[in-house]
């Protein structure tokens, strides 16, 4: 498969001070759904807007389907459907008028009715944009991107602020687009979204890619397979176990890494059935009390915490 989006050594420094993107390399294949996952301020929007040709990079190369923004901007615009992180469309136009307006900019757009139906906006076609709910607005934003029959869809946090059901609807729309051969690039700070929607993703922090791969691959490589979290009564009062005690847990069988998380000890574990009995024994020998014990499948969140020592979303 050929590359739909490529960028090399992308850098963006705002006002000579803020280094939003520092040397980013990406390659997105045709037909792929690629995600940029990262916390607030990581540089996702900056990156995606540079790729969309809306922001000039301080340095670096971008190529979209083999073309560069310098040479073929007008032609390239015909291929891209874009939804920005925050666009407030005109409130006094109806949904249909808005879609028709965007359709009118393209040489061969899709029919508005078809797009309305696909995004389940037919019912709202004649309502003013100002009267739509958040989820409907978000769908309209995607509709304005899809109406041009794009080859590549760029979505910047398409589901932020939506309820679970609306998010799921949007995921389905994105998958349908991908099934028809489209390429998708999206940003998100929802782990589950990245995990379920993206074929591959790049975890971005401080303007750099700190890990890249398929969600399963990333979890496998970096998250450990399972996470065992527990707390013991011996843990000191301020919630921090001292480093030496923490490292002691690493000696348990099948443990890959240890970290302290919100007053609990979290172990990345390959085979919980080997670790847990040993853990219980160890606690028994220490004479402390087990306060809490859970095990779960490792997630992208664990990957992120492992890589940065921070959580993706502080809420």
């Amino acid at each position: 498969m050929s590359a739909a989006i490529q960028c090399r050594d992308l850098r963006k420094t705002y006002d000579g001070k803020v280094e939003a993107v520092r040397g980013l390399n990406l390659e997105v294949l045709t037909g792929e759904c690629f995600g940029l996952l990262g916390p607030n301020g990581a540089g996702k929007t900056t990156t995606i807007e540079i790729l969309e040709g809306l922001l000039a990079p301080t340095s670096g190369e971008v190529s979209i389907l083999g073309h560069s923004w310098r040479d073929d901007e007008r032609e390239m615009r015909e291929w891209l459907g874009i939804s920005l992180q925050e666009t407030r469309l005109s409130e006094k136009l109806t949904v249909r008028e808005t879609i028709e307006l965007f359709a009118s900019f393209y040489r061969e757009p899709r029919s508005s009715d078809e797009v309305l139906e696909q995004l389940q906006l037919t019912e709202k076609a004649d309502s003013w944009v100002g009267k739509l709910s958040g989820g409907q607005r978000q769908r309209l934003a995607v509709a304005t991107a899809l109406v041009c029959n794009p080859k590549i869809l760029f979505l910047d946090e398409p589901t932020t602020g939506l309820d679970p059901q609306s998010r799921r609807q949007l995921w389905d729309i994105i998958r349908a687009f991908q099934r028809d051969g489209g390429t998708v690039m999206l940003t998100t700070h929802y782990m589950d979204e990245a995990e379920r929607l993206c074929d591959r993703l790049a975890i971005v922090d401080h303007g750099q890619v700190i890990a890249e791969g398929s969600p399963a691959d990333l979890i496998e490589r970096l998250g450990g397979h399972h996470v065992v979290e527990f707390a013991v009564s011996g843990t000191s009062a301020d919630g921090k176990s001292d480093g030496a005690a923490l490292q002691a847990w690493k000696g348990l069988p099948s443990v890959e890494s240890v970290r302290e998380d919100d007053g609990m000890v979290a172990l990345n574990v390959k085979q919980p059935h080997l670790t847990i009995p040993a853990l219980l024994d160890a606690i028994h020998q220490q004479g402390t009390q087990l306060q809490h014990l859970t095990t779960r499948q490792a997630s992208l969140e664990d990957v992120f915490v492992r890589l940065t020592g921070r959580h993706l979303r502080e809420d």
């Binding site: 969309e52 615009r77 920005l84 666009t87 407030r88 965007f102 900019f105 304005t144 041009c148």
Partner: peptide, 10 residues
Amino acid sequence: KLLKRFVGTP
């Protein structure tokens, strides 16, 4: 950001 959105089209 509507101008930016428009500029993102042809």
